[in-house]
Write a protein that binds this DNA or RNA. Structure first.
Lengths: 109, 109
DNA sequence: TAAGTATATGCAAAGAAAGATATATATTTT
DNA sequence: AAAATATATATCTTTCTTTGCATATACTTA
C-alpha cells in the first residue's frame, strides 16, 4: 500500500474522530434526521451541529435533502455504516425522548 | 449510547487518523516488527517512529517485547485488526524491499 | 411583506496534535 | 570500559482542530 492510500484513509478516521460527529452518524444509521432533530439529540447549538454536518457532507459520508423548511440528512456511505456497526456497540435504536419540532417527529401516527 | 462512549470511540479513531500510524499497524497485521524495520518501512527518523509507537502502545493497540538490542512490536487488539482489514484494502503482504538490519530480517533461511 | 423558524456560513480565540531535534538509556561488541 | 547500535523520552515550534459567536439565507405563515 502506498503513502497516498494511508493518507486518505487517515483522513476518513480523522472525520470519525469526533464524539458529536460519531453521535450524528450513529443516529443516521437507523433513520435519516433533520438538523433540528440532531440538535435536540446532541444538545448542541444549531450552528455547531451544522458545522459538523458540513464536515460529514464535504467528506461524502452524508447527503442532505431539503423538505420545506427542514433539511434531512442521511448516511450515504455503506462502508462507513458497516464500520460504525462494528465499533459502536449500540444495542439497537434506543427510545430516547427528543424534543424536536420537525414534522416527522410530530406527525400523527 | 452515551456521551462517554462516543468520546472514547472518537479517541480510537483519533489514534487511527494518522498515515504513519496506519502504515505501522498495517505492517503489524501480517507480522510483528522491530523498530528499525518500521523505520526502514516508513522512511522516518527513529525518534519519530518511536513516538508513534508510543501513541499506539499507550492506547493498547500494540504491545512490545524486547529481544536483545531490538524491540519487537505486535498488534494486540483483534477488533482493530479486523477494522483495518475492512478499511485498508491492502492486497496481501507485498514484497517491499526493506533495508532493515535486525536479526530477523537477516537470518539465513 | 413582515415576522418567525430552520439552516448555513465566516471568523477568531483557545486548545490539541504533528514533527523536528536533542538527549537519555540499555544492550552488545571490541 | 569504551564505542557502537537500538530504542525511548523530553521539549519546542508550527500547524490543525475545535468551538463559540455573529450573521446570512431561505422558506413559511400571518
Amino acid at each position: 500500500m502506498n503513502k497516498k492510500a494511508y493518507q486518505s484513509q487517515a483522513e476518513l478516521f480523522q472525520v470519525l474522530s469526533h464524539p458529536v460527529r460519531l453521535q450524528i452518524l450513529d443516529a443516521l444509521r437507523s433513520q435519516d434526521c433533520c438538523v433540528c432533530h440532531l440538535q435536540a439529540l446532541t444538545k448542541r447549538p444549531q450552528a455547531y451541529v451544522s458545522q459538523q454536518l458540513r464536515v460529514l457532507r464535504d467528506f461524502g459520508l452524508v447527503s442532505d435533502e431539503k423538505d420545506g423548511q427542514n433539511v434531512y440528512y442521511r448516511l450515504c456511505n455503506d462502508m462507513v455504516g458497516e464500520l460504525l456497526g462494528m465499533v459502536l456497540t449500540s444495542n439497537g435504536p434506543k427510545a430516547v425522548m427528543i424534543d424536536c419540532t420537525c414534522p416527522r417527529c410530530n406527525e400523527v401516527g
